[in-house]
Structures are given as C-alpha cells and as structure tokens.
Design a protein around this nucleic acid. Structure first.
Lengths: 128, 128
DNA sequence: CCGAATCCGGTGGGATACTG
DNA sequence: CAGTATCCCACCGGATTCGG
C-alpha cells in the first residue's frame, strides 16, 4: 500500500483516488442529473428514484468536496439550496453521458449474456 | 419502483441497470487490467493492489455474467484459468480508459478543491 | 494455482424523529 | 425546505481454511 510506481493499479495513483470518490451509482446519477440543469435538494431526491435523503446528502457533500458541483444557499424563508455543476464536474459528466448512451445501446447484449450465464449455471446445478 | 417512463433515473432504466452491475471501483479496475491483456487470476490479484481474493472472484464472476470478460480453463496440472476481454467489454473499457486519462489530468484540481473544502470546514468548526 | 466455504467484525445505509 | 441526529441491522468484505 506504499509503492505507487508499478502502474495504474497501485493504491495511490490518481485513477484509484478518483474511483474511491465517485465510483458508485449514486454519485454518477447525481452528477448527470445536476449537469442537465441546476436542482434543489428535494427535486433531486424525487428524481433519483430509490435514494434516501441521508445518502443523497452524503453524495452531494462528496461531489461538492471534490469540486464537481457547487452548493448555493438563498436566504429566503424557508431556505432554498441549489446545486449546480462546475466546469470540472461538467467535463466529467460528459463522460457519464457517454456511458449512459452506451448502456442504452448495449443493454440487450448484457441482458442476453446474463440469462445465458444463469441458464448454463442452473443446468450444472441440476445434474449435480 | 415500477414506472420507468420518467427518464434516466427511474429504477428500471438501462443506465441504472448497468450502474448496479459495474459502478464500483474494483469492477472498473479489473476491466481496465484485463482489457490491456489477458490475465491469470493471481496476476490480477497481484496487480490490483488491495483487493482480496474473495472480492476479486466475485468481481470477475459478475463481469463474466454480464458478458464483459471471458473465462477459459486450460486442463493443465494444476489448472490455469485465464480471463480475457470480450468485444462488448472492450468497448466499455475504452470509456474507462478515457476516465483514467481524465483523472490523471484533473487530479490536481480535485485535490485542490478537497483541501479548500476541508480548510473552510475546519474554520467553521473552530468558531463554533 | 484457482477457487469455494465458513466465520465474523465493521459499517453503509434505511427508518424515524427533530431543528432552523 | 433542507438538512442533522439517533438507532439498528443487513450485508460487505477481510482472514482463514479447505478442496480440485
């Protein structure tokens, strides 16, 4: 965990560092959502189906800490908080969008591979 | 959790489905590693610093199930198992490589944002 | 060498209630 | 509205052992 001269998989390389921070589905989804337009907290919570408010808060904090989104508070009553993408975050979101496109184009191949795999496994199971 | 017509963040859309499967750092690292060249199990374990053999096995199984890598067993003694990338997996790995390039180019910005964020937080802490 | 199986501690994350 | 605080439990993943 100390030597980092052996390539892109050493524990201390930039790739690992980035992956540690944003390689989870909630971060990516939140980034995509905010990239399309600035959003309020509850709007995001409603839009990202299945996320809890606790996890959303944690996710937004981490994205903000990494300089990928910005958080601005309007001193109204009650307070309204808006999250917006930063230039850095947008350049990352572009790649997320590419992945989104890819997933739509290749979902059928993946589903087919899954059912094929599961099918061959259940066969092996039955003749045990 | 049932209606998927409201856009890319509904629980059942392809993006979510893909993210559920591969949006973790180990999957991405393993995919990049295998994409560069076919590998044996222990070679991967040695290369991907910090992963346990249990988690590596789980990760490889999931990638295989999704048709992103292939697993071939050579009937030698002892058995030698080789993992290789599939065309589908390669097309995904290309994007992972793009992210890797991005992370190297932008790691300084991220690190700067982090220390800036942490610094302002510790200030707020001290005058509480 | 490649993996399956078991045990087990830590923690991620859900549910709920409360605050400014 | 936008969180924070607390409880609590499932499951993730590490260590170890065993098998082909």
């Amino acid at each position: 965990m100390t030597r980092d001269s052996r390539g892109p998989f050493a524990a201390t390389c930039p790739t690992r560092h980035l992956l540690d921070q944003i390689a989870d589905k909630w971060s990516m989804l939140a980034l995509i959502a905010i990239d399309s337009a600035p959003r309020r907290f509850n709007a995001l919570k409603r839009e990202i189906e299945g996320i809890s408010q606790k996890v959303l808060t944690q996710t937004l904090r981490r994205l903000e800490r990494n300089g990928l989104i910005s958080r601005s508070v309007a001193p109204t009553v009650p307070v309204s908080v808006t999250y917006a993408i930063t230039p850095l975050g947008h350049s990352l979101a572009v790649m997320m969008e590419t992945m989104r496109t890819w997933s739509i184009a290749n979902i059928d191949s993946i589903l087919a591979a899954q059912s094929c795999y599961d099918h061959s496994r259940s066969e092996a199971q039955s003749l045990k």
